[in-house]
């Protein structure tokens, strides 16, 4: 499968020359499966560019189908939906999986961002495409886009965010953004979800020093990410969801520190990639 990053920033888009290299758009990742299906993970502002890139394909003709995985409904993970061109083209079909007690509750949450107080779209009903909203049952694998997907909640401040594992053949990709572990790191169930993944994309918002000051916000430092990767024995760690105040040079430093943290934990064999807008990886 092929993974591409459209938005790698946390919390709020951070435009400006100092974020040109890694990018300032909020969370959005696409996964093209080996069989050619499209999975979109999170709908931050990066979704605008992903949507425009899909217009020359069947999505431009109203014949596109994609699976959307939503880690949680904080604004920086849903803001792009109203700017995703394919969702306005009748005939396109999206199945959106996220975390809520029921699919209708999840749909209500998405409706909330279309509320006319906030958006000229008024309601999801005004999107031309169909968006079929489904609630993920934690730990219970489901079939979508021809692959097996499993979601498990991670602690994220006062709420939770789903981590997703996508398995296709002998390859696996885990997306674990927006996570602030309790002392001791990932739960046994979550560690199991990460176990042996070909690639683990992990929240890497902070340096440990910044995280210490802001722990109640529920994000990871590069040490948390390196810990999780080393303990789960993954093939590659992908750093993601950088703090909005970090310039490209700060992320460069984060990358170097994370490499050292991996090595210190016996993770010399783990490849390390700092996610950047436009970067594409073959898993």
């Amino acid at each position: 499968m092929r993974v591409r990053f459209w938005g790698v920033r946390g919390s709020i888009p951070a435009p400006g020359p100092e974020t040109n290299r890694y990018g300032g758009n909020t969370s959005c990742v696409s996964v093209h499966t080996a069989s050619g299906e499209l999975i979109i993970i999170d709908m931050g502002t990066g979704l605008l560019s992903l949507g425009n890139s899909l217009l020359p394909t069947e999505f431009g003709k109203g014949a596109g189908k994609a699976t959307i995985l939503l880690s949680h409904a904080h604004w920086d993970h849903i803001q792009g939906l109203g700017f995703f061109a394919p969702v306005f083209i009748p005939g396109n079909q999206f199945v959106l999986w996220g975390h809520a007690k029921s699919s209708s509750l999840l749909e209500g949450i998405l409706e909330g961002q279309m509320n006319p107080n906030f958006s000229p779209l008024y309601t999801l009903r005004n999107l031309g495409a169909t968006v079929d909203v489904r609630a993920v049952i934690p730990g219970e694998p489901f079939e979508a886009a021809g692959v097996r997907i499993t979601g498990r909640p991670n602690p994220h401040g006062s709420t939770t965010a789903l981590a997703f594992r996508i398995d296709e053949g002998d390859r696996s990709f885990v997306y674990a953004s927006d996570v602030g572990y309790a002392p001791g790191g990932p739960s046994p169930e979550v560690l199991e979800l990460y176990r042996g993944a070909s690639a683990l994309l992990h929240d890497c918002t902070y340096t440990p020093e910044h995280q210490e000051k802001r722990r109640n916000r529920g994000f990871s430092s590069y040490e948390d990410a390196a810990d999780a990767a080393a303990r789960a024995g993954v093939g590659r760690l992908i750093m993601f969801h950088y703090d909005q105040d970090y310039a490209d040079t700060d992320v460069d430093a984060l990358h170097a520190s994370c490499r050292a943290a991996l090595d210190a934990r016996g993770g010399q064999a783990i490849e390390l990639t700092a996610a950047a807008e436009g970067l594409e990886l073959e898993i």
């Binding site: 400006g16 020359p17 300032g24 758009n25 502002t45 605008l48």
Partner: peptide, 14 residues
């Protein structure tokens, strides 16, 4: 929508 990136550096993306 905020639009980060090289193409909007001069006028700004905020």
């Amino acid at each position: 929508l905020p639009v980060p990136g090289r193409l909007t550096n001069r006028y700004g993306g905020n």
